Amino acid sequence: MAVSTPRPETQNQPLEDGIARRLLESSEQLSYDPLTEVDWETPLDEDFHGASPEWSTLYGTRYWAEMTDAQRKALTRQEAASVASTGIWFEMILQQMVLRDIYAKDPTDDTFQWALTEIADECRHSIMFARGAKKLRAPAYRPHRVAVELGRFFKTVAFGEAAYAAILVAEEVLDVMQRDWMRDERVVPFVRTINNIHVVEESRHMRFARDETRKRLARAGWLRRQIHSVMIAVASYVIVTSMVNRKVYANAGLDEARAVREAKANEHHKSMLRSSCSGLMEFLTSVGLLTRPALYFYKRAHLI
């Protein structure tokens, strides 16, 4: 863990840079190096889950009741790896949107420097997730081709509040589930460490995304709000529905077709997603981004 003395704020610092300066100081005081903080050397212990079982897409189904303890643990390890792979995919989108947003802006501003700090964090997180998935003995789970192309389009056209609110949606959902996983002693220790690192560092990213969303919306008219609210909702739907690849079931030794059917009908998992997004939905409502058209996609993704 890197620790340094925070820089004092300057007398003439612009007001809008205040949050960025505090986030930079927080990063200086509390940041992690996954290469040294995570135990990469100890072999995988298959007596542990990869995620809290209550977060499994099959938890509470008939299939779950029929599965052996070993099968349940194997499934949660594959699901955790799939979530990590989806995280890498979206973090790559995030980095490109942030870089485009700060392109040609004043590099001496705290906001510019915080944006680069966030990108550096995301690079480390992506490597950490990749190594974690490999240690969980999972293949490279990739989103469906349609999702990949939609992500390519979104990262190209999204700007302002559309970019930052979409970042917030993805991070909020991950944050709630990972807070459960990092405290759960049933989860394999190295995954708990990964989740702890991500939760600590992403809390700063979410603070920045909220602030930027509010700031950009202050200059947005009614039509722009309507368009961006739908763009954010569609991005949220694609992200959330891509988190668990259907191939996790076969790789855990299960009947893929049956598992997919039961997972789609699993009301417990849907309720977990809704509960994880309650704070997020309150924020979107408060800034006027939870419009009627947007609600359709959030409901389809079981986020509300």
Rank of each mutant, 00 (worst) to 15 (best):
A2Y: 14
T5K: 11
P6Y: 11
E9M: 14
E25Q: 15
S27F: 12
L30N: 15
L30D: 14
T36F: 13
E37F: 15
D39N: 15
D45F: 08
W55R: 12
L58T: 12
G60E: 02
R62I: 00
W64G: 06
W64K: 04
E66I: 02
M67E: 02
A70L: 14
Q71C: 05
Q78S: 09
V83D: 02
G87C: 05
I88F: 02
I88L: 03
I88Y: 08
W89M: 05
F90M: 06
M92K: 10
I93Y: 08
L94V: 11
M97D: 05
I102R: 09
A104G: 10
T108N: 15
D110M: 14
F112L: 01
Q113F: 06
W114Y: 15
A120Y: 11
S126M: 14
I127D: 11
I127G: 07
I127L: 10
G132I: 00
G132W: 00
A133F: 04
K135L: 08
K135S: 07
A140E: 12
A140G: 01
Y141P: 04
H144Y: 03
G151M: 07
V157F: 12
V157L: 08
G160K: 11
E161I: 00
A162M: 05
Y164T: 05
I167S: 07
L174I: 03
M182T: 09
R183Y: 01
R186G: 14
P189G: 02
V191I: 12
R192T: 03
R192N: 06
R192Y: 04
E202S: 10
R204I: 01
F208D: 09
E212C: 00
E212I: 01
T213Q: 03
R216K: 11
G221Y: 13
G221D: 14
R225W: 04
S229F: 02
M231N: 04
A233C: 04
A233Y: 02
A233T: 04
A233K: 03
A235C: 08
I239H: 10
V240F: 00
V244D: 06
Y249F: 11
Y249C: 01
A250N: 04
L254A: 14
H269Q: 12
M272P: 00
L273W: 01
L273E: 03
S276W: 01
M281K: 07
T285H: 09
P293A: 09
A294S: 10
Y298G: 00
Y298S: 00
L303Y: 08
